[in-house]
Nucleic acid binder design. Structure first.
Lengths: 137, 137
DNA sequence: TATGAAAGACTAACTAA
DNA sequence: TTAGTTAGTCTTTCATA
């Protein structure tokens, strides 16, 4: 992980479809070098995946969810990952155990999801934050 | 946004480099249809960007940050987005105002970042959660 | 939807450090 | 031995009909 790697990552984070030749020009090296480095970073797990970020609904939110102490948090998380509006599930430390990152049609959609979460028998608490704006690091 | 669109998004979320021809085969349509739909979804903002997910460090965390009431939260958020370990910045509703999603070398790196955040004059509170595991929705 | 042209990615052989 | 380069080939995308 040197500076060249970091430059490649920065470019790909902003547009993962940037051609290797264009990246190479921008950072002053050859297409082959960029390709080799991207491959190496994928092998090493530095690049986890090529993906898309989407916005299908109009309301983004974080749902922080606490589950009962005697429960298989992983199983609950897996189940919630299947819910249509859920983009991402994190298992976290702290007073809650699971964080859902969701993309709902509207605030009612968020509310329905909260209700759905609270209806799970393992869930003991929820806390919701609307995501008002997002910026890439 | 019909079911075909959703299937395309699902495939691209898992591997955004999947060729149109392969997506077409998988969902039973033509390459041109997939291409047109991807283009349309990009125009409509449903696909925000093609990107990569990375893991350069060993510790992922969420930092929830409260800023003083009279402060330009946006400006603070922009500044924090520049910090090396910060992958994502959200401005959120709730008791905190900003959430940083960070990827640090180790727990000490997280701690340094918390210190850095608390040293900003606009910051009045922080709360940290380690991200123990992540699942795609 | 089909097809040809253009662009991009990949293979492999080579060079340099 | 590892990283980088380059030329040739193959694949994917894109524009047109």
């Amino acid at each position: 992980m040197d500076d060249l790697d970091r430059q490649i990552l920065d470019i790909l984070r902003r547009d993962a479809r940037t051609p290797y030749t264009e990246i190479a020009d921008e950072i002053g090296t050859s297409e082959g070098t960029v390709r080799n480095r991207v491959e190496r970073m994928m092998d090493d797990g530095v690049i986890e995946r090529f993906t898309i970020s989407t916005r299908t609904g109009n309301v983004q939110a974080m749902l922080e969810i606490g589950v009962a102490v005697d429960v298989d948090t992983n199983g609950v998380a897996e189940r919630m990952a299947e819910w249509a509006e859920v983009d991402l599930v994190w298992m976290v430390s702290g007073e809650q155990d699971i964080v859902l990152v969701v993309d709902a049609a509207d605030t009612r959609g968020v509310n329905d999801l909260i209700t759905k979460a609270r209806n799970q028998e393992e869930v003991v608490s929820t806390k919701t934050r609307l995501i008002l704006e997002e910026q890439l690091g």
